[in-house]
Write a protein that binds this DNA or RNA. Structure first.
Lengths: 232, 232
DNA sequence: GCGCCTGCGTTCCTATAGGATTTGTGCCAT
DNA sequence: ATGGCACAAATCCTATAGGAACGCAGGCGC
């Protein structure tokens, strides 16, 4: 159907070309990560195909991949739904998992840090500080993005493909919780200070301290969230 | 005609029915896990469809899910291949990741252990002891299966969906390494003793010791494997 | 001989069609 | 009024067809 551009043979196509299913995957992931698809909502294959103006086949493939991230769930012969909102137990489990992985990432990232990596981290913290944190979602969206980016960069700098994959799975869930956890951004000052503490330890080249600061950060995030949202 | 028996009206159909793509997924996973599909081998969509006597569509869906486990890799417009053999660095990274997750699993599993769970663990260790460890693959296949099962059970008993998901991703890679790491089973006696030590700590209800024993086990596995397979 | 290109088979990728299943609605019997 | 059945629409699931890209072999020019 997109006959006008049958091939990416134009100058400088990406090193690895993408197919339709990849674009669908990215579109769905973006919609999940920025709240356009709400927890519990049905994700119809045919419906998505109509909306994206593609056939159901690539949508099916993209959803099959997304299922493995835990962000959508499938019931045979019934279809896909966005994973439901976190319960209090889910959140506790997520934080427990973060506590077992992120401090390790921080320690490894610190000992293997590159100058570029450190710059990127500094930029993320800077973005956190300058990001608006107003009431509407569109406002503090960039704040959440910078938060997620900070942790993702550390996982990447740890230079371990398996830990990175494990974190990325968690990261999607964390971001979904940030969006739908019920609480807005009520702890920006403290969170920024904790991020800064991690960054300082990294810049100082102290792996153990970086790990400790990360542990402290995640524990405090857990404490604040559990206090803010006692319901459920 | 009062024929209200759609199809699954047989006695006790599974709570969640399966579709073709699920069967294809399981078949491929089994072939990957028992060595029938060797690292680097091409996994043709059409070819698999012919072999399994289904259309390419469910095969494509199954492979899309498998890609996210890291056991197969996809190159756009070129197809899927079984992930290549582990390099020495890959193995080191895998063990590093295990060391950050499995001791935590062991600690949590110990404090949350159920009697049934403990029985299953005991059975796994028993199976390890009695499994043949002869030279041919078919011989020590059950040994590898019991090994993987032991660790998987602990991850399940930890009662944390995220840690379980993280472990399962690692577990597939671990099993693939056990199969294709180049070394057969040269350390059964020591490995069994280490498993027994973990089990004893679990049975004794000492979470910290369980975690320590697990750490020790993984570290020793790493040490033995690095010594056995110095190449690469 | 070496490099390039041209043709062909294989494979991937997307769209489409049709069967199977679930869900929602309305009617009928109790 | 309530429960159950039948019918209809929407959706999922699988198969199939055809276009597009890749890999390879063979031939041509240098």
């Amino acid at each position: 159907m997109p006959a006008p551009s049958p091939s990416a043979a134009r100058a400088g196509f990406p090193v690895s070309r993408q197919v339709l299913a990849d674009h669908v995957y990215e579109a769905l992931l973006e919609w999940l990560m920025d709240g356009r698809l709400e927890p519990g909502a049905a994700v119809s294959i045919d419906g998505m195909a109509r909306e994206l103006d593609v056939s159901p086949t690539p949508v099916r493939e993209a959803l099959a991949r997304l299922e493995h991230t835990g962000m959508v769930r499938r019931v045979a012969l019934k279809g896909y739904r966005v994973a439901p909102v976190f319960t209090r137990e889910d959140f506790a489990e997520l934080m427990e998992a973060r506590l077992s992985i992120e401090p390790v990432n921080a320690r490894l990232a610190c000992s293997r840090m590159t100058p570029d990596g450190l710059d990127a981290l500094k930029q993320a913290v800077e973005d956190l500080k300058t990001a608006p944190r107003g009431g509407t979602f569109a406002e503090y969206r960039s704040y959440l993005e910078a938060d997620e980016r900070f942790h993702q960069l550390i996982a990447a700098q740890a230079n371990n493909q398996f830990l990175l994959a494990a974190y990325n799975t968690l990261g999607g869930q964390i971001q979904r919780f940030r969006l739908f956890g019920g609480v807005g951004i009520t702890d920006a000052e403290q969170a920024i200070a904790e991020h800064q503490a991690v960054l300082d330890a990294m810049a100082g080249g102290d792996p153990e301290k970086a790990a400790d600061m990360m542990t402290e950060h995640v524990e405090k995030v857990r404490g604040r969230a559990m206090a803010d949202a006692p319901g459920d």
